[in-house]
């Protein structure tokens, strides 16, 4: 049981409404504020962005740059949780997060998020370059202000436009090495950008009642589940050529092309399956299957590209 969950447990000695509240969170609660699963994705995609950049990079500085980008992403997640704590409390999926559960006070989360945001941007600027630092600052601003404070509460296209924030890390990684962006890093941005709607809407379909209760205008709430299924299918079909593009018009190789094509077709098939199955437990399973496959899809594509970049450095390659 997490600390946050214990705080909710009325049998816990920590639960007493009469006592003055004190800081309750442990390191784990603060770690959870950084949205670790999202950070994994950011680290992975930013690493690929860095490794596809031309020219050498000092491994220590590369690692530190990656750390700065990951912490910046985590800080924006923390600020997102701070702003949306009242909404999170209304949804089962998010009600056990540290702020709604009472483990971390909103003010503490705000200070934590702001400190990490400023610290990560300054650190990246000092060890890599200020172009990458400015891009990281813009990404945090985009996620917290444009997406969290504005789009999320205003339009059903919230995650379409807001998805850009999650798509920037490969470009930031590339920029940390070179100080500029390339066509390939932009194509990875585009890939994550087009991938985000079917990924997120698959989950939103299942959780649409919770979003409606919280007053968040997600597409299934505003346009209905069938319109969302159509949008998911269209984005998933569009994702096939977008996923293949780094190999067709840039520097990705054959391995990447095969993986992108195979996984792209599988994802589109599951999107079609979701489009067909509209009611009952089958529809719910289809949505979860698409959600899980979409995560696998992104890791497979970036993993393939990572392998391609690392192959020349493997022992048997060096022996040739």
């Amino acid at each position: 049981m997490t600390i946050a969950a214990e705080r909710l447990d009325q049998s816990s000695p920590a639960f007493d409404e009469e006592r003055p509240t004190i800081a309750f969170g442990t390191a784990r609660d603060y770690y959870e504020l950084l949205k670790p699963r999202v950070m994994q994705l950011v680290i992975f995609t930013a690493l690929v962005g860095m490794l596809t950049a031309p020219g050498p990079i000092n491994p220590i500085l590369g690692f530190a740059s990656l750390l700065a980008i990951a912490v910046g992403a985590g800080a924006s997640g923390c600020l997102n949780m701070w702003y949306d704590a009242s909404i999170d409390a209304l949804m089962d999926r998010t009600s056990k997060r540290p702020i709604p559960a009472g483990a971390v006070k909103p003010g503490e989360a705000l200070a934590f998020g702001m400190t990490l945001s400023i610290g990560s941007v300054l650190f990246l600027g000092l060890i890599a370059n200020w172009q990458a630092a400015a891009f990281l600052a813009f990404t945090i601003f985009f996620y917290v202000v444009v997406y969290t404070m504005w789009l999320k509460h205003w339009t059903a296209q919230n995650i379409v436009i807001g998805g850009a924030a999650g798509a920037f890390p490969p470009m930031i990684g590339y920029m940390a090495v070179t100080g500029s962006v390339s066509l390939e890093s932009f194509l990875y941005f585009l890939l994550i950008f087009v991938w985000t709607p079917p990924h997120f809407w698959a989950l939103a379909l299942v959780k649409s009642n919770e979003y409606a209760r919280a007053g968040v205008p997600m597409l299934p709430v505003v346009a209905g589940p069938n319109a969302t299924r159509l949008q998911i299918l269209l984005y998933s079909i569009a994702l096939i050529p977008v996923g293949m593009a780094p190999a067709l018009i840039s520097h990705a190789g054959l391995l990447y092309l095969v993986v992108a094509t195979g996984f792209g077709v599988v994802l589109a098939y599951y999107a079609y399956d979701l489009f067909r199955k509209r009611e009952g437990d089958e529809a719910r399973k289809a949505a979860f299957r698409l959600f899980g496959t979409s995560i696998l899809y992104l890791f497979a594509l970036f993993g393939a590209r990572l392998v391609e970049q690392l192959l020349p450095f493997l022992p048997w390659s060096l022996m040739k």
């Binding site: 816990s12 000695p13 003055p20 004190i22």
Partner: peptide
């Protein structure tokens, strides 16, 4: 500050 419990 309030007296802290062992757990706190």
């Amino acid at each position: 500050p309030p007296d802290l419990t062992e757990e706190e």
